[in-house]
Simulated assay, not measured.
Amino acid sequence: MIDVVLKKGKEKAVLQRHPWLFSGAVERAKGKPANGDIVRLVDATGKFLAYGFYNNQSRVALRLLEWNEGIEINDDWFRQKVRTAIASRSNILHAGQTDTCRLIFSEADYLPGLIVDKYADHLSLQILTSGIENNKAVIIDELQQLLQPKGIFDKSDASSREHEGLGASSGGILAGEHPPELVQVKENGLTYGINIAEGQKSGFYCDQRDNRRILAEHTAGKKVLDCFCYTGGFTLNSLKLGAASVTSVDSSALAIDTLQKNIVLNGLQSPQHQAIQSDVNKQLRKFKEEGEMFDVIVLDPPKYAPSRSALDRASRAYKDLNRIAMLLLNKGGLLATFSCSGAMDINTFKQVLAWAALDAGKEVQFIYQFCQPEDHPVRASFPEGEYLKGLLCRVL
């Protein structure tokens, strides 16, 4: 195994078990490791620090895996990490109301660059690092042995792979059979049709599972607007718990079509539901011009800040989006607003909402703080894993 030498004085984060080591902290490699190879990280004196995946084309030169020098990273090591991750989700899947969740969450489960989502009898898998790419055969084999899925589908994101010097993934089936156009799953007792092959990201946003249920408890008898509704998570939960009306807005025709099918699947057809395919920002302004008002508004936009360098621009976008939403709420109405940008911490998000309220001439109370569910855990040594945050605001 090739040694990679750390620059003097750069040991702190490694000793604190942070899994990322940036290229600027590397002094040299004692050899020529290939991207994705497992290397031995040592300090300037040659003392062992950790094992990790090496990649000289990524800003993250090493993704650290193991800090115990006596533990060999081999096929059994990867199999054990897969087994441990899946076992930790057993309470979610055995409750009877849900058969979809995230089984493996990258660094949080000590498998950096691997995301596995379970959709009933199918798995959706993303491989985003060269190290996982090199070990995918044993990972796929272990998933098959443990879960016997009908199929494992590759949903690896091309742009993320580019940062690792990886080509576009082959896509399609990695094992088993191709998923049907809509795989039916259960979440919180509701049924969803998931388009794994063509849907966004891994196919479904299971990270909002708890938040959908919590928000729905505030929607009985209320006029609800669900923005960036995708395939209807907040919409269906609100209709189920007795919302007076729900308007769902998304720019994706596929999402709106799937949403309509999901409403039928659950027997929630109602003349009080309206689905609109439109750019959300434009539609909000149209509602304002028409004098439309709501009791509850959900804002669950895509990632505006993929990196810290984009945070200022993203903050302006979040502020403008939330400002116009506040203007569409009846006095005392509720705004459930989210950010899935890891670079946007909760305190910054609160400040952005305070600016939005000031510009809208509104007073805002934060009455609940949303977060990602337990199948998206956050390692104490890797706070960057906490990406989803949200606030339930009363707008006065």
Rank of each mutant, 00 (worst) to 15 (best):
A317L: 15
S251E: 07
L166F: 01
L125R: 12
L327E: 15
A310K: 08
Q272D: 11
G113K: 00
L6W: 10
L241F: 01
Y205D: 04
L146P: 07
Y51F: 13
E66L: 02
E142F: 04
A175Y: 11
D375L: 12
G36D: 02
K7A: 04
E142K: 05
D210Y: 11
Q369N: 00
N211W: 09
Q269N: 11
N195L: 05
S248P: 14
P271M: 02
V138Q: 04
E363C: 11
F349T: 08
S159Y: 07
I214N: 05
S106K: 12
R308Q: 09
D375Q: 08
L328A: 00
C101D: 01
K389I: 08
D207T: 09
A175P: 00
P19K: 11
Q16R: 15
S341R: 12
G193C: 07
Q274E: 10
K389Y: 03
Q126C: 07
I324W: 00
P180K: 06
L65K: 08
R213M: 09
F234I: 08
L391K: 02
L93H: 05
G221N: 06
I71C: 01
N322L: 14
D226L: 06
A317I: 13
A360H: 09
Y318I: 14
Q260W: 01
F153S: 04
G242M: 06
T348Y: 12
G361A: 14
L114W: 03
A380Q: 02
L143P: 06
Y119L: 06
S245R: 12
I73A: 03
A343E: 03
T348I: 12
G189M: 14
R40H: 12
N35G: 15
D99R: 04
G267E: 01
C229I: 11
S170D: 14
Q16K: 14
A85H: 07
